[in-house]
Design a protein around this nucleic acid. Sequence first.
RNA 1: GGGCGUUUAGCUCAGUUGGUUAGAGCAUCUGCCUUACAAGCAGAGGGUCUGCGGUUCGAGUCCGUAAACGCCCACCA
Length: 804
Amino acid sequence: MLDKKYDSLEKEAKWLNYWKENKIYEFKPDKREVYSIDTPPPTVNGKIHIGHIFSYSQAEMIARYKRLRGYNVFYPFGFDDNGLPSERLVEKEQGKKAHEIGRTEFSKLCYETTDKYEAEFQDLFSRLGVSTDWSMYYKTVSPSTIKISQMSFLDLIEKGHCYHKESPALWCNECLTSIAQAELETKTIKTTFNYVNFETVEDGEKFTIATTRPELLPAIVCVFVNPNDEVHNHLIGKTAHIPVINVNVPIMADEKVAIDKGTGVVMCCTFGDQTDIEWWKKYNLPLKYIFTEDGRIIDSVPNYGGMKIKEARKKIIEDLDSGGYIVKIEELEHEVQTHERCGSEVEYSVMKQWFIDIMNHKEDFLKIGQEINWYPDYMHARYEEWVNNIAWDWCISRQRYFGVPFPVWYCKDCGEPVFASKEQLPVNPLVDHPKTTQCPKCGCSEFIPEKDVMDTWATSSVTPLINMRYGEKENYESILKPMSLRSNASEIIRTWDFYTIVKSYYHFGMKPWNNVMISGFVMANKGEKISKSKGNSKVEPLDLINEYSADVVRYWAASGRLGTDITFSEETLQRGKKLINKIWNVSKLIQMHLEDYQDKDFDNFEYVDKWILGSFQNMEKEYLKYLDHYEIGLALNVLEKFFWNFCDNYIEIVKHRLYRPEEFGVEPRYSGQKTVYTILYKLLQDFSIFFPYVTEEIYQDIYHENKSIHLTEIKPLTYSFDDEVMYGDSMCEIISEVRGEKSNHNLSLKTVVKELEIHCSPGIKDAIEKSQKDFKATLFVDKLVLDNAEKDYEIKELELEIEE
RNA sequence: GGGCGUUUAGCUCAGUUGGUUAGAGCAUCUGCCUUACAAGCAGAGGGUCUGCGGUUCGAGUCCGUAAACGCCCACCA
């Protein structure tokens, strides 16, 4: 028998353990069709917050749903523990920078730290009820993943999509590494717009340049004006003298200069921004690189060498001012590009880096995007927008320690890269040696190892390959090409989704998955996104689970439409708590009346029973339709709405028949029993994707014909009870009206109705006549008079028994 | 500045292809201990659906436009 009160903490621990011991979520290939889910490996950089719970729960519910629909669900889980996020976590915990700790020791600390957090994360996700097969758990720093990531790199080299080139790249002088365009985050900062006077060497004519970055004056290689700028175009061809720095540079014409921006005269430095890089390439300008990799001015620059960028800016403004070159200084707020991992402003550097070709295959990536179903569909537009606007090839080199090493050495003499052979993988070039003993190009026998590691995304973009055990003898390639579903939040469409598409296209020439479901964000308050880095997550997932139970937290996670942002709401949790409590209570009632129940074929249902069976059938149809479109919240809405109707109307009616067979008859009682038996079973199934724990507890106590409710299959009802559904609903409205009368007179609902006269349409009249006993018992009616009417129904006479 | 979304009751949110008096929960108010549930039940009040214009017999829903907010991108002269 079910307990009087449901103790979620105790029951959830019990079933979690049961599922684990009985391997309920184990994946084994069999005859069933596979439904595979590529779920994001969470980044290991501190805490799992409520936003993760929101997004991961939604995909998890799809896993449960597909299982109930008879699919063999492949749902692995992993952690993204390589790369910069982990390094920064370790640096933060140690209070030291990686280079201060040393490469070997630092890597060791990274492994230890990520292991520690992953154990916590795994525990948290398990408690949330994530139905993954943990035996397939992967890490992005494990040898097997490194092997796959290195194979992916070598495959791209072979296919000619990956190249090594000295090229300007985005550089973070906080993290001391190059980064990719996708890792940029824009930030608004306050700065000054400085109007500086230059003059021409030829005739000493003064002209003004406005700049936010005067410290770049030593890096100026030329000055540009727009050829159509009537105020300034006479300067073209002359020579500009740079104040303070005392260097002369040519004044050139380019149409890209905006006449109305600043003063209309632009200084071109190598490199201040992306336009500088374009001009540098276009006009073959000299390279004047003045920053060190840790964000200082190089020593060879007189007066400013060795200063930090911002110090130099301050100093140079002072010098310009005292020389009388400053015309004016304006306060300015503008957007700068920062590194999303650390928030510091991004510079450019020139060094040899590995790049993956993006620019030559944009059309292909767009085409693949079109072959994928995006849910909600407008997320596809965001993908296209990103692909269309991408401006750089993908730089995958990082000058860091904790990542997948490039399987590459370089010839000491000629610099020719020598690649590891695939059999050698995983390889660490700092420790291992190439198979070849001689450089194929010059014959030299000494090699220098590549010490850069790969970008995190270079590896997380191969999660489908990790899942299919790419390159292994025993693999899942045939069942996972493509995978069924990718799920993630909208912020990583441009990274994780895009890069995975890039890799899948290059490796296999096809889409990585058939469907993508994108969740929204959780807002801390209106308009404020919760994020790890901002530290504004006031609600800890574990606290919530302990206080409300995993089922309740999942209820919250399932609210709303797919892709829409939600605000964290305690009220929604309360609502979930009440719903689960109600499921528990009604199950208790139903169980009480099933003690003598034997399930058998039966079709002589009472009218009211047909009404609720038909209503359920209609609701479930909608429920399934929503889930087939990944609309978890909407599916829950219709289910919840039906459920309260079931409790408040149907159960209130049928309960009299269940309690008093001597009055209502044995067969009508059986009809009621069969109905509640059937519907509760199906309700538990439908609710199980949201509330895996409470539904399991009830299922095991009442039905228990399978090892778990999560291994059962949804079989939709096929009755034809359309009339009963329609007229039954009308009958409920009449019941509600009569109850309203009692309420309005401040009377108990048990107050006897001495006489009730209703005029109604033939359909409704038929419904009430056929369920007369139920109807009268529900409303405590003594005398019921029915008559025909044209409109649906009208209560003509209602006499209440009022006791003095 | 560009792309995408959001704007519905005091709060959190639904509202399918355009179709009667726009829904739910919470909150508020009024009742009711009714053999599952007072963490409950029955009711009530509360909305010019962000503004403006248009299409239509009919618009919360479609089109245009403006505003606010959010995400992503561009903008460092």
